[in-house]
Design a binder for these strands. Structure first.
Length: 378
DNA sequence: TACATACAC
DNA sequence: TATGGTGTATGTA
């Protein structure tokens, strides 16, 4: 599900008297339709209940890492000479002009997002739930896509979408992008009218409610792009809070980030992104992982690994795929994630082959107290 | 190539 | 006492 609401992550120093305020990502309740909830109160209660847990300590470790990255960036920033700054400012200006020249405002993109998708699917198959408060949970607490949902997904609304854009892009189970340029021109209707029409048709034909946003490209149709860590670095090290800032401080970005990262930031600043019509890309990897209560029991760990290898093998064969690099993923009792990989002379897909190599990788890491094992084929 | 991170959903 | 699963991209060594 897409989150249109960004958490207002604490940019720098949080008063010590309110430590829970720095844990926005984990304990946020910033979801549409939750305006009436006392945000700070919820945050404080969850914080009180969680502090001291191993998970929490790991979150603190990650926060410290993020601060370190920010400090490091600040330091590099401080070391730039006047000449450097002038040099990179020129580079940024040139790049901004080049990027701006590629701006294409001729297309009209529509982003469709199913509202409360899992709950809606559940209600359709069990109408007695209608109007009742409901939460959909998967394994443990967060909803995961079960096979029913996967089969369903945006596919339910596909016939509608196809009437407007034969090549519409399904971005995930509950999101799709439609290029409605031609429809608007041929029928001489405004994009917001088309959006409304699609919303109504989807509801009439599937019973699902969706939101739709319009823009000249997919980035703007949806709004998004920068994650929590990047946002923190941009805000605190560069004092970049807005798209305008991204452009004005482009010189610093060009100086301290790789050309491709700098390009990405400048494009976001210009509101560029997603005007192309990508051909359906092929899958590049397949993976699976399981969480369990932390244990050092080697028999148990090897058993889990065998199960995962078997599942991965069946999934690979179902799609007729094979992999040449096998990656083992581990999460320790203290929530640190590790990956170990081997690249083989030949592609494999049988559960025996996968298990054989996965076992070798695991063996090298034992003894260890683990709470998750995963396997991936690329 | 191997590994870690970040990100999206 | 307790916090998911799957996939992609990218930086770095």
């Amino acid at each position: 599900m897409s989150k249109m609401v960004k958490s207002e992550s604490s940019s720098s120093d949080v008063p010590l008297s309110k430590p829970w305020q720095s844990y926005q990502t984990v304990y946020t309740n910033a979801k549409a339709g939750m305006d009436g909830v006392e945000k700070e109160k919820v945050q404080r209660i969850v914080y009180e209940m969680s502090k001291g847990s191993k998970y929490f300590e790991n979150e603190e470790r990650k926060e410290a890492l993020m601060r370190q990255r920010t400090d490091n960036m600040r330091e590099r920033l401080g070391k730039l000479s006047i000449t450097d700054i002038a040099h990179y400012q020129k580079i940024a200006e040139r790049r901004i002009t080049e990027l701006e020249a590629t701006r294409d405002l001729s297309r009209i993109w529509l982003h469709v997002d199913m509202d409360a998708f899992y709950a809606a699917v559940e209600t359709l198959s069990n109408p007695s739930l209608k109007g009742k408060p409901m939460a959909v949970g998967g394994m443990s607490m967060i909803s995961t896509a079960n096979y029913e949902a996967r089969r369903y997904g945006v596919r339910a609304a596909m016939p509608v979408f196809q009437r407007y854009d034969l090549n519409f892009i399904s971005a995930s189970l509950d999101e799709a992008y439609l290029d409605i340029t031609e429809v608007c021109r041929e029928r001489d209707v405004r994009s917001d009218e088309v959006a409304e029409e699609i919303r109504r048709s989807v509801f009439e034909e599937t019973g699902l409610i969706c939101s739709a946003g319009v823009g000249p490209n997919r980035l703007l149709a949806k709004i998004g792009g920068i994650g929590k860590v990047t946002e923190h670095i941009l805000r605190t090290a560069f004092e970049i809070d807005t798209c305008k800032d991204l452009l004005e401080k482009g010189g610093f970005l060009c100086a301290l980030f790789s050309p491709s990262s700098a390009d990405f930031f400048l494009s976001v600043g210009l509101g560029l992104g997603g005007t192309d019509t990508p051909q359906a890309r092929l899958r590049k990897s397949m993976s699976n992982e399981r969480t369990f209560s932390a244990t050092e029991d080697e028999a148990f760990l090897y058993q889990k690994l065998a199960e995962l290898s078997h599942i991965l093998s069946t999934d690979l064969q179902k799609e007729g795929l094979r992999g040449r690099t096998l990656t083992l993923k581990l999460k320790t009792a203290s929530f640190e994630v590790q990956t170990r990989a081997v690249t083989l002379p030949k592609c494999i897909c049988s559960s025996e082959d996968i298990l054989l190599h996965a076992k070798k990788l695991l063996k090298a890491e034992l003894p260890a107290s683990l709470r998750l094992i995963g396997s991936k084929a690329v």
